[in-house]
């Protein structure tokens, strides 16, 4: 067991660094750049029952220390993911992958999760009840405890693999939703998805994003994400995967101190495609600097002053 290894819901990760869904495709673009087996794992592009084009463009708006996206779950659908993306991934990634799933009804989630659960390459199901960019689905399941629990319980009934529920920060009380998912059988919680945001073009006086609003991510949201990870991790007994604006090895350590067992890196991949590799390489040195021997020992290690 290396210094960086952590155990996420019963599966050993060589390190806690996980590229976040929607920023890493199905792995191929990055596999052209570096050996993606250096990663703990990665969470693949949010996958739905049917193929989706997603929202109209522009889908991207730049912000100070971040960006807004309104991609709207563009993906080829679960059948093509199983028939084409996963076999292709086998050629460049030999670890269990995290399957990110979205849906528009409880039945959708169950259908897509049961198919992906049966794939040998899939280690975890990350159930996204928090996409801010689609109507009548996604985030609407994650904005109240009862519906989040309903999706969780339904997926748990068909899944043999660990189920990690990905939560939205666009709620009044994220802890109550996390607890409802835990009570419904979730094996882990991941957070935060993007914060709902908006930009206006001063010349045209129109929203920059065709869909008006989108999900804000990047370093600007790190303190908000860290706070929510801390709140959730302090109140549930299942592993928490922390994400939101993580861009450096120091950010990873900070997220873990707040209570994260593993850490997802999202927007940073889009700016520096090598960032996850760099973070993993830098972690041992940063750990030395802060007197950390084994990275798992700092999980939830924040000391309350």
């Amino acid at each position: 067991m290396g210094r960086l290894s952590v155990n996420l819901c019963g599966i050993e990760l060589d390190n806690p660094v996980i590229p976040a869904s929607g920023t890493f495709g199905y792995g191929h673009e990055y596999a052209e750049l570096y050996d993606i087996n250096v990663l703990g794992t990665f969470s693949f592009k949010g996958t739905t029952k049917d193929p989706r084009f997603g929202n109209p463009t522009p889908r991207i708006a730049e912000c100070t220390a971040g960006l807004i996206n309104a991609v709207g779950l563009q993906n080829p659908g679960v059948h093509q993911v199983i028939e084409q993306e996963l076999p292709k991934l086998k050629g460049c990634f030999h670890k269990p992958v995290m399957a990110n799933v979205s849906g528009f009804s409880v039945e959708d989630y169950v259908y897509t999760c049961s198919l992906l659960d049966a794939q040998d390459q899939v280690g975890w199901l990350e159930v996204n009840v928090s996409c801010p960019n689609v109507h009548g689905g996604g985030m609407s399941f994650g904005t109240n405890p009862a519906s989040a629990a309903e999706v969780t319980a339904a997926v748990k009934r068909v899944a043999k693999k660990p189920v990690i529920v990905k939560l939205s920060p666009n709620v009044t009380d994220i802890v109550s939703i996390a607890k409802a998912c835990e009570d419904a059988g979730a094996n882990g919680i991941s957070l935060i998805n993007t914060l709902l945001g908006m930009r206006i073009d001063l010349r045209s006086r129109k929203p920059v994003i065709a869909n008006t609003m989108g999900g804000f991510s990047g370093p600007a949201i790190f303190p908000v994400a860290l706070r929510m990870v801390y709140q959730v991790a302090s109140n549930v007994h299942i592993p928490v995967v922390g994400m939101g604006g993580v861009s450096s090895a120091e950010d990873v350590i900070e997220m873990m101190m707040a209570g994260a067992t593993a850490v997802e890196v999202g927007a940073a991949n889009l700016i520096d495609p090598f960032c996850c590799k760099s973070i993993i390489e830098q972690l041992p040195g940063v750990m030395d600097r802060y007197g950390i021997n084994q990275i798992s020992e700092i999980i939830g290690g924040v000391e309350n002053g």
């Binding site: 890493f24 991207i60 991609v71 563009q74 889009l270 495609p273």
Partner: peptide, 22 residues
């Protein structure tokens, strides 16, 4: 030309529909 996120195919920010698919 389209507004892009990453520029290398990862974020799906600049997708368009064509006769031969997305």
């Amino acid at each position: 030309e389209k507004r892009m996120g990453c520029g290398f195919g990862a974020c799906m920010g600049c997708s368009c529909k064509t006769i031969t698919g997305f």
